[in-house]
């Protein structure tokens, strides 16, 4: 491994749409999935990541490099994560939570989940259904009853123009 030679080892990651990315092993092993491959000696050539597309993987690698450059300072890491996620739209966040889950990166997973929850919180039921691709399986009567029970929760719901 890298530590023995003293020179940083670089890994090559391949997205499911065949884009190749080089990343320092020390940053890539933030992913427990990748770390296990490295430890098992399966990381010699190209590491295929079948569940992550190139756009998302590029973003995840930016995060890996950014966060691993910060020394052990939780405050600074947190502010980096907040900044990193601040300009991401819902679709990107959803792709990233899937990637973080697949790559087993708990710090990214927690941060992205919290960000999605924060985005969802004030949204309408219709917005969430659309974004999550969920079909409404209530009958009109059932839906009216659920709404009636929680009438007050519809105060302060944002308009749905924002995507």
């Amino acid at each position: 491994m890298a530590a023995e030679t003293g020179t940083p080892t670089t890994l090559t990651l391949k997205s499911n749409d065949d884009e190749l990315f080089s990343v320092a092993e020390s940053a890539a092993i933030l992913s427990v999935t990748i770390r296990n491959m490295v430890e098992d000696g399966c990381a010699g050539g190209v590491i295929p990541l079948d569940n992550v597309d190139g756009k998302t993987l590029a973003s995840v690698i930016t995060y890996m490099n950014g966060i691993s450059a910060i020394p052990a300072d939780e405050e600074k890491k947190k502010s980096y994560r907040d900044k990193f996620l601040s300009d991401k739209d819902f679709e990107t966040l959803a792709d990233m939570v899937l990637a973080a889950n697949y790559l087993n990166m708990s710090c990214l997973m927690d941060a992205v989940s919290a960000k999605i929850a924060q985005v969802m919180e004030k949204k309408s039921v219709g917005w969430v259904r659309r974004k999550f691709g969920i079909e409404n399986d209530y009958t009109p009567e059932e839906e009216a009853a659920v709404k009636e029970e929680h009438k007050w929760t519809f105060e302060g719901v944002e308009t749905d123009d924002d995507n």
């Binding site: 969920i134 079909e135 929680h150 929760t153 719901v157």
Partner: peptide, 11 residues
């Protein structure tokens, strides 16, 4: 609050 609201998403 959000949980109460999102019970209306689906069963």
């Amino acid at each position: 609050e959000a949980l109460a609201k999102f019970q209306g998403i689906c069963k």
